[in-house]
Deep mutational scan, measured.
Amino acid sequence: DSWHDTVDGIELELHGADEELLKLAKELLKRGVSEEEVRRIIEELLK
């Protein structure tokens, strides 16, 4: 799946992010949310 590559990229960027955020990112990508949107959501949550 192409979203796996996206998640791997996000995981590299979010090496400090907790497991729950990564699960959320994967779930959003699986549901068709764009990579940009996922990054934006996670950045908001990390604030």
Results as ranks from 00 to 15, higher is better:
residue 1 D to W: 00
residue 1 D to I: 07
residue 1 D to A: 05
residue 1 D to G: 09
residue 1 D to V: 03
residue 1 D to N: 07
residue 2 S to W: 12
residue 2 S to I: 05
residue 2 S to N: 15
residue 2 S to E: 13
residue 2 S to A: 10
residue 2 S to F: 13
residue 2 S to C: 08
residue 2 S to G: 10
residue 2 S to Y: 11
residue 2 S to H: 14
residue 3 W to R: 04
residue 3 W to N: 14
residue 3 W to F: 15
residue 3 W to Q: 15
residue 3 W to S: 15
residue 3 W to V: 14
residue 3 W to E: 14
residue 3 W to Y: 12
residue 3 W to M: 15
residue 3 W to D: 13
residue 4 H to A: 08
residue 4 H to C: 07
residue 4 H to S: 08
residue 4 H to Q: 10
residue 4 H to F: 13
residue 4 H to L: 15
residue 4 H to I: 10
residue 5 D to S: 04
residue 5 D to Q: 03
residue 5 D to I: 02
residue 5 D to H: 02
residue 5 D to R: 00
residue 5 D to G: 07
residue 5 D to V: 06
residue 5 D to A: 02
residue 5 D to P: 15
residue 5 D to T: 06
residue 6 T to W: 12
residue 6 T to C: 04
residue 6 T to A: 10
residue 6 T to E: 09
residue 6 T to Y: 08
residue 6 T to K: 08
residue 6 T to S: 08
residue 6 T to F: 10
residue 7 V to E: 07
residue 7 V to G: 09
residue 7 V to K: 09
residue 7 V to F: 13
residue 7 V to D: 07
residue 7 V to I: 12
residue 7 V to L: 09
residue 7 V to P: 10
residue 7 V to R: 08
residue 7 V to A: 11
residue 7 V to C: 01
residue 7 V to T: 13
residue 7 V to M: 12
residue 8 D to H: 15
residue 8 D to K: 09
residue 8 D to R: 08
residue 8 D to N: 14
residue 8 D to T: 12
residue 8 D to Q: 15
residue 8 D to V: 15
residue 8 D to I: 14
residue 8 D to E: 12
residue 8 D to C: 09
residue 9 G to L: 15
residue 9 G to T: 15
residue 9 G to R: 12
residue 9 G to C: 10
residue 9 G to E: 09
residue 9 G to N: 09
residue 9 G to Q: 07
residue 10 I to R: 12
residue 10 I to P: 15
residue 10 I to S: 14
residue 10 I to T: 11
residue 10 I to F: 15
residue 10 I to N: 15
residue 10 I to C: 03
residue 10 I to A: 13
residue 10 I to V: 08
residue 10 I to G: 12
residue 10 I to Y: 12
residue 11 E to L: 13
residue 11 E to K: 10
residue 11 E to F: 04
residue 11 E to N: 12
residue 11 E to Q: 11
residue 11 E to V: 07
residue 11 E to Y: 01
residue 11 E to D: 12
residue 11 E to M: 07
residue 11 E to S: 14
residue 11 E to H: 15
residue 11 E to R: 08
residue 12 L to G: 11
residue 12 L to H: 11
residue 12 L to P: 10
residue 12 L to W: 02
residue 12 L to K: 13
residue 12 L to A: 10
residue 12 L to S: 12
residue 12 L to Q: 13
residue 12 L to F: 04
residue 13 E to C: 03
residue 13 E to L: 03
residue 13 E to Q: 04
residue 13 E to G: 04
residue 13 E to F: 00
residue 13 E to V: 02
residue 13 E to H: 04
residue 13 E to T: 01
residue 13 E to R: 00
residue 13 E to A: 01
residue 14 L to V: 13
residue 14 L to C: 05
residue 14 L to W: 05
residue 14 L to S: 08
residue 14 L to P: 11
residue 14 L to M: 09
residue 14 L to R: 06
residue 14 L to N: 11
residue 14 L to H: 07
residue 15 H to F: 05
residue 15 H to L: 11
residue 15 H to A: 13
residue 15 H to Q: 11
residue 15 H to N: 13
residue 15 H to I: 11
residue 15 H to D: 09
residue 16 G to P: 03
residue 16 G to T: 14
residue 16 G to K: 02
residue 16 G to D: 09
residue 16 G to C: 03
residue 16 G to W: 09
residue 16 G to M: 07
residue 16 G to Y: 13
residue 17 A to R: 05
residue 17 A to W: 10
residue 17 A to V: 13
residue 17 A to N: 06
residue 17 A to G: 09
residue 17 A to H: 10
residue 17 A to C: 03
residue 17 A to Y: 08
residue 18 D to Y: 12
residue 18 D to E: 10
residue 18 D to I: 10
residue 18 D to Q: 10
residue 18 D to C: 03
residue 18 D to W: 11
residue 18 D to G: 13
residue 18 D to K: 06
residue 18 D to F: 11
residue 19 E to F: 03
residue 19 E to P: 06
residue 19 E to L: 05
residue 19 E to N: 06
residue 19 E to A: 07
residue 20 E to K: 07
residue 20 E to T: 07
residue 20 E to V: 07
residue 20 E to S: 07
residue 20 E to D: 12
residue 20 E to C: 02
residue 20 E to F: 11
residue 20 E to Y: 06
residue 20 E to Q: 07
residue 20 E to H: 06
residue 21 L to G: 02
residue 21 L to S: 04
residue 21 L to C: 06
residue 21 L to D: 02
residue 21 L to T: 11
residue 21 L to A: 05
residue 21 L to Y: 06
residue 21 L to I: 13
residue 21 L to P: 00
residue 21 L to K: 03
residue 21 L to V: 08
residue 22 L to M: 12
residue 22 L to F: 03
residue 22 L to W: 03
residue 22 L to I: 11
residue 22 L to E: 10
residue 22 L to N: 08
residue 22 L to D: 08
residue 22 L to Y: 04
residue 22 L to Q: 14
residue 22 L to V: 13
residue 22 L to G: 06
residue 22 L to R: 12
residue 22 L to H: 12
residue 23 K to N: 10
residue 23 K to A: 13
residue 23 K to I: 12
residue 23 K to P: 01
residue 23 K to E: 11
residue 23 K to M: 11
residue 23 K to Y: 06
residue 23 K to R: 10
residue 23 K to S: 08
residue 23 K to V: 10
residue 24 L to T: 10
residue 24 L to H: 09
residue 24 L to E: 02
residue 24 L to K: 12
residue 24 L to Q: 04
residue 24 L to P: 00
residue 24 L to A: 05
residue 24 L to R: 06
residue 24 L to S: 03
residue 24 L to F: 10
residue 25 A to L: 12
residue 25 A to H: 02
residue 25 A to K: 03
residue 25 A to M: 09
residue 25 A to E: 03
residue 25 A to N: 00
residue 25 A to S: 03
residue 25 A to W: 04
residue 25 A to I: 14
residue 26 K to Y: 04
residue 26 K to V: 09
residue 26 K to A: 10
residue 26 K to H: 08
residue 26 K to W: 05
residue 26 K to I: 14
residue 26 K to E: 13
residue 26 K to R: 11
residue 26 K to C: 03
residue 26 K to L: 09
residue 26 K to N: 10
residue 26 K to Q: 09
residue 26 K to F: 05
residue 27 E to Y: 01
residue 27 E to L: 01
residue 27 E to I: 05
residue 27 E to D: 14
residue 27 E to F: 00
residue 27 E to R: 03
residue 27 E to T: 05
residue 27 E to W: 01
residue 27 E to S: 05
residue 27 E to P: 00
residue 27 E to H: 04
residue 27 E to K: 04
residue 28 L to D: 00
residue 28 L to F: 01
residue 28 L to W: 01
residue 28 L to V: 01
residue 28 L to I: 03
residue 28 L to R: 00
residue 28 L to C: 02
residue 29 L to G: 02
residue 29 L to W: 00
residue 29 L to Q: 04
residue 29 L to V: 07
residue 29 L to S: 02
residue 29 L to N: 02
residue 29 L to Y: 02
residue 29 L to P: 00
residue 29 L to F: 02
residue 30 K to W: 02
residue 30 K to P: 01
residue 30 K to L: 14
residue 30 K to C: 01
residue 30 K to R: 08
residue 30 K to I: 11
residue 30 K to Q: 14
residue 30 K to G: 12
residue 30 K to D: 14
residue 30 K to A: 15
residue 30 K to H: 08
residue 31 R to Y: 05
residue 31 R to T: 12
residue 31 R to D: 08
residue 31 R to G: 12
residue 31 R to M: 11
residue 31 R to Q: 13
residue 31 R to N: 14
residue 31 R to K: 15
residue 31 R to S: 14
residue 31 R to W: 04
residue 31 R to I: 11
residue 31 R to H: 09
residue 32 G to N: 02
residue 32 G to Q: 02
residue 32 G to S: 02
residue 32 G to P: 00
residue 32 G to K: 01
residue 32 G to F: 02
residue 32 G to Y: 01
residue 32 G to M: 03
residue 32 G to T: 01
residue 32 G to C: 03
residue 33 V to S: 05
residue 33 V to E: 06
residue 33 V to W: 09
residue 33 V to C: 12
residue 33 V to N: 05
residue 33 V to F: 14
residue 33 V to R: 04
residue 33 V to G: 03
residue 33 V to Q: 03
residue 33 V to L: 14
residue 34 S to Y: 04
residue 34 S to C: 08
residue 34 S to L: 10
residue 34 S to W: 03
residue 34 S to H: 10
residue 34 S to M: 06
residue 34 S to D: 07
residue 34 S to Q: 08
residue 34 S to N: 14
residue 34 S to T: 14
residue 34 S to V: 07
residue 35 E to V: 14
residue 35 E to I: 12
residue 35 E to Q: 15
residue 35 E to K: 15
residue 35 E to G: 15
residue 35 E to W: 13
residue 35 E to R: 15
residue 35 E to P: 13
residue 35 E to F: 12
residue 35 E to S: 15
residue 35 E to C: 07
residue 36 E to H: 15
residue 36 E to I: 14
residue 36 E to W: 04
residue 36 E to C: 01
residue 36 E to Q: 14
residue 36 E to M: 12
residue 36 E to L: 13
residue 36 E to G: 09
residue 37 E to R: 06
residue 37 E to V: 11
residue 37 E to C: 06
residue 37 E to W: 03
residue 37 E to P: 00
residue 37 E to I: 13
residue 37 E to Q: 10
residue 37 E to A: 11
residue 38 V to S: 01
residue 38 V to D: 00
residue 38 V to Q: 00
residue 38 V to F: 03
residue 38 V to E: 00
residue 38 V to R: 01
residue 38 V to Y: 02
residue 38 V to W: 03
residue 38 V to L: 04
residue 38 V to P: 00
residue 38 V to T: 04
residue 39 R to C: 03
residue 39 R to N: 04
residue 39 R to L: 11
residue 39 R to I: 11
residue 39 R to M: 07
residue 39 R to T: 07
residue 39 R to K: 12
residue 39 R to V: 08
residue 40 R to L: 10
residue 40 R to H: 12
residue 40 R to F: 06
residue 40 R to G: 05
residue 40 R to C: 02
residue 40 R to Y: 05
residue 40 R to Q: 09
residue 40 R to M: 06
residue 40 R to K: 10
residue 41 I to Q: 03
residue 41 I to T: 06
residue 41 I to D: 00
residue 41 I to A: 04
residue 41 I to Y: 08
residue 41 I to S: 01
residue 41 I to V: 07
residue 41 I to R: 04
residue 41 I to C: 02
residue 42 I to K: 00
residue 42 I to F: 04
residue 42 I to L: 09
residue 42 I to P: 00
residue 42 I to S: 00
residue 42 I to G: 00
residue 43 E to Y: 06
residue 43 E to K: 14
residue 43 E to W: 04
residue 43 E to R: 14
residue 43 E to A: 12
residue 43 E to C: 03
residue 43 E to L: 13
residue 43 E to H: 15
residue 43 E to M: 14
residue 43 E to G: 14
residue 43 E to I: 13
residue 44 E to C: 12
residue 44 E to N: 07
residue 44 E to Y: 06
residue 44 E to P: 04
residue 44 E to T: 13
residue 44 E to D: 09
residue 44 E to R: 07
residue 44 E to H: 10
residue 44 E to A: 14
residue 44 E to Q: 13
residue 45 L to N: 03
residue 45 L to R: 07
residue 45 L to F: 09
residue 45 L to M: 13
residue 45 L to C: 05
residue 45 L to E: 03
residue 45 L to S: 03
residue 45 L to P: 00
residue 45 L to A: 08
residue 46 L to V: 11
residue 46 L to G: 05
residue 46 L to N: 05
residue 46 L to S: 05
residue 46 L to A: 06
residue 46 L to W: 05
residue 46 L to Q: 08
residue 46 L to I: 11
residue 46 L to D: 02
residue 46 L to P: 01
residue 47 K to A: 08
residue 47 K to V: 12
residue 47 K to W: 03
residue 47 K to G: 07
residue 47 K to Y: 03
residue 47 K to D: 04
